[in-house]
Design a protein around this nucleic acid. Structure first.
Lengths: 180, 180
DNA sequence: CGATCGGTTGATATGAATCAACGTGCGTGG
DNA sequence: CCACGCACGTTGATTCATATCAACCGATCG
């Protein structure tokens, strides 16, 4: 079982015709592929976005700690649950929401993840994603992602530049991106 | 923990503006909401499609059996894994695939589930879904679902009528609906 | 200095949504 | 038994959101 220690990465599915779906962006502390806790050969593709450090627990180690019971069982359970909830939400967003809503949703999810690990001032979030990543995560074209960001900029909702996401209008972003 | 004994049902997410995403169709033997095995208050909506029978295991019962270890731990693990895989696949299909591909995918998934529980002859599958359900599952409009079915019919791929799905051209359906 | 990458922008095409009408079967109440 | 309403599916016309194609720009890098 691998855990991301520093840097950004993402887990994804690759179709043979080149399309890919990014299922989750991984931040420090995230398990690369929670399903492998239960099943050894669960196929799962991960790529790094930035420089990255990873550390590993063996499955037997995890099982042992679960047996002893020092919080490991609940830790395993809660990351599995979080995983389930996240993917279900993603499916819901992809099935039901417009381009704007999808992107807003993704940004909010990322923001809360980033904020949990960094001190955020003035709504400026470190943001290493390329528009291609966003496109692959929300099922849109990079050029359409660019257009949506253009609109967000014009409307004074947010900007991204030089690896920093700056949000001016959090309520508006939440209005669009929270699955009410 | 609730298990479906007879009949069809589905698990879904309801957004406050009326949109809903069907996450999974449930067939006999399926756990209504696997996440509740781990977390008591995991919110999860289920509706029945046909008349239905359900039976319940208490969480303590499950935990006990896991402790004794009569196959229960691996059963819990494998349904959780299957669940993860399914939702991830759904997200991938919703993010990357066209209307035809989405519907083909859904039908193939359902067919394998049905075939695992029934004797299927001449590719005729019992099929209680309304087009609205399909629409909510694959993120399309009911009228568009109707059009896609119309094309499938014209091309001699399949028909649905009177609660029976008949597939004439399985390879074509697989060409469209398997995430290669 | 040219090449490549990432993003932006415009023109156009296309897939799916929307709006609306219609048919059919079915249950319900008169 | 009939008439009506209603749910479900189909079909056509039109609109709208997003994709596609293409050109361009600035930064970065060998």
């Amino acid at each position: 079982m691998l855990v991301l220690c520093t840097g950004w990465a993402f887990r994804y599915v690759q179709l043979s015709d080149g399309r890919r779906q990014i299922l989750r962006f991984l931040l420090p502390g995230d398990v690369l592929s929670p399903a492998t806790i239960f099943e050894k050969n669960y196929p799962s593709w991960v790529k790094s976005l930035t420089d990255v450090m990873v550390s590993g627990f063996s499955r037997s180690e995890v099982r042992e700690r679960c047996a002893i019971g020092v919080g490991a069982p609940s830790a395993v359970a809660s990351t599995s649950i979080a995983e389930m909830r996240d993917v279900s939400e993603l499916a819901t967003v992809l099935g039901q929401c417009s381009a704007e809503e999808r992107i807003a949703y993704l940004l909010l999810r990322l923001m809360s993840g980033i904020a949990a690990r960094n001190v955020i001032r003035e709504h400026r979030y470190p943001f290493p994603l390329r528009q291609q990543h966003i496109a692959d995560a929300v099922g849109l074209t990079p050029v359409h992602v660019s257009r949506v960001f253009g609109q967000f900029r014009e409307r004074g909702v947010l900007t991204i530049s030089e690896g920093v996401l700056t949000v001016f209008d959090v309520p508006e972003l939440e209005r669009l991106g929270s699955l009410r």
